[in-house]
Design a protein around this nucleic acid. Structure first.
Lengths: 221, 221
DNA sequence: GTCTATACGGCGATAGAC
DNA sequence: GTCTATCGCCGTATAGAC
C-alpha cells in the first residue's frame, strides 16, 4: 500500500545532524523556514539527501518532536528523583525552559495545520502532564490547603501553562505584568514548598539545575 | 521607495467579502490555507483580483487582524460600560470567546515568522490589556484582598491568559484538568464579584451576553 | 546503505494588458 | 477596476550512481 521508498537508518550520524540543524532553524526563523533546501544548505548536503532520511516534512517534524520530548521527559524524571522534596519548583522550571518552550510553541502552531503533529503533540503533552501531576498528587497534602477547590491537575495546569504563555507573549514583545506574575509565583513557591535552606542572602531563587544554554547536540537541554 | 503598485479601495464591497472569506478559511483550515488561490476560489474571483486588494499576504493578514481587533475592542468597551459592576466576569468572557481566541492563536502563530504581524499583535494586545487593567484598577479594593501580592496586571494576565491556553490545548485535543480549572475560576468569580441576583436555581453562571456563534460578517463577535 | 540529479505542479509575487 | 502571463522557490516523487 504505502510507497516502498527507501529511507535512511535511524542511527545515521547524518540523520542526527539534520535534526540538529532543523531544530536550530526553527528556533532562529520559525518552522516555516524548514524547507528541504534550507535544511540541506545548513548541513552542507543536497535536498535529496534530506528527503532520503525524511521522505516528507511531516516525517522530519515528527522525528524532531519525538527526540526533543523524549529528552525532556528524561530530564524531568531525573530532576523529580533528585529533588523529591520540591516537585512544584521542578515543574515550574521545567515549563520555563526557553528553548523547549519556544520549540513547543512552534509545534503547537504547526499542529494547527498538520494533523500528524497535532496527535503527537497531544500524546507527548499527556505523558509529561501525567508524570507531573503524579508528582504533585504524591505529596498533595502539602499543597492542598493553599486554595479551596484546588486539585493537582488544576495546579499543574497553571504551573505548566503560565510560564509558557509568558514566553509566548515575550516572543511577540509583550511583557505587561510578567514581573508581577513572577513575583506572585515565587512567593507562592516559597510558601508551599520552603527550601531546605530556608533563607538565602538574597531574594534569589535556588540555582537552576543546569544551564539552559543551547548545546548543538540534542540529547540535552 | 515602496512600490507604487495600485491597490483597491478600502470601502470596496469585494474587499470586505474577501476578508470574510479569509477569516472563515483561517478558522476552518489554519492560516496556512490562506493562499491567493484559495481565497479567490472561496469568493468566486481570480487570484489576481485578491492581489489587487491585498498586494502581499501580509497586507491581507494585517487588514484582517485590524478589523477583528477593532471590533473586539468595541465589544469589550460596550460590555464594560453596560455591566460596570462585573469587570472581571467580562474579562473572563471576553478572553474565552472561541472564535476570537482561535483567530488570535493563529495570528500568534503567524507572528512567529511574519514580522509585520508580530508588531501589530503586540500593539492590539497592549491596547486591549490596557482597557481591561484599567477596569480592574478602578475597583481594585474589591479584588485586592483575594491574594497577597496580587496586582491588577497579574490578575488580568491570569484571567486573559488561562482561557486562551485552555482553548489552545483543546484545539489539539488536550483537556486535562480543564474542568477543574473552570470550577476554580467560577468559584473565584463568585467570591470576588457576586452578581446582583446572588443565587440562582442552578449552579449555572449568569447567561452570556451574546451567542458566540460565528456570523458571516465581521463586525460582530 | 548513502547520496545525487531531475521533473512536476502549486505557491507568492510582479508587471502589465484589457 | 479586473484579470493574465510569467518568474523563482517550494514539497514531493522517481531513477539511478556510488
Amino acid at each position: 500500500m504505502a510507497s516502498p521508498r527507501r529511507v535512511g537508518a535511524e542511527t545515521s550520524k547524518t540523520r542526527a545532524t539534520l535534526l540538529d540543524g532543523t531544530e536550530q532553524l526553527i528556533l532562529e526563523a520559525g518552522y516555516a523556514a524548514v524547507t528541504y533546501r534550507n535544511v540541506a544548505a545548513k548541513a552542507g548536503v543536497t535536498g535529496g539527501l534530506v528527503q532520503y532520511y525524511f521522505p516528507t516534512l511531516d516525517d522530519l517534524f515528527l522525528a524532531l518532536l519525538r527526540r526533543r520530548s523524549d529528552a525532556n521527559l528524561e530530564r524531568l524524571l531525573a530532576a523529580l528523583e533528585e529533588r523529591p522534596d520540591e516537585p512544584l519548583r521542578i515543574i515550574w522550571e521545567f515549563n520555563t525552559d526557553e528553548t523547549s518552550a519556544g520549540l513547543m510553541m512552534e509545534f503547537l502552531a504547526l499542529a494547527n495545520h498538520r494533523k500528524s503533529i497535532r496527535s503527537e503533540i497531544a500524546e507527548v503533552t499527556r505523558r509529561a502532564r501525567k508524570v507531573q501531576v503524579d508528582a504533585l498528587a504524591a505529596r498533595w497534602p502539602q499543597y492542598a490547603s493553599s486554595a479551596e477547590g484546588l486539585s493537582p491537575g488544576s495546579l499543574l495546569f497553571l504551573m505548566a501553562t503560565v510560564p509558557k504563555m509568558m514566553l509566548l507573549e515575550e516572543s511577540v514583545g509583550i511583557a505587561a505584568a510578567h514581573h508581577d506574575v513572577l513575583r506572585l509565583v515565587e512567593q507562592y513557591l516559597d510558601s508551599v514548598e520552603p527550601t531546605r535552606a530556608p533563607r538565602r542572602m538574597q531574594t534569589k531563587r535556588p540555582a537552576k539545575r543546569k544551564s539552559p544554554a543551547r548545546r548543538r547536540h540534542g540529547s540535552s537541554t
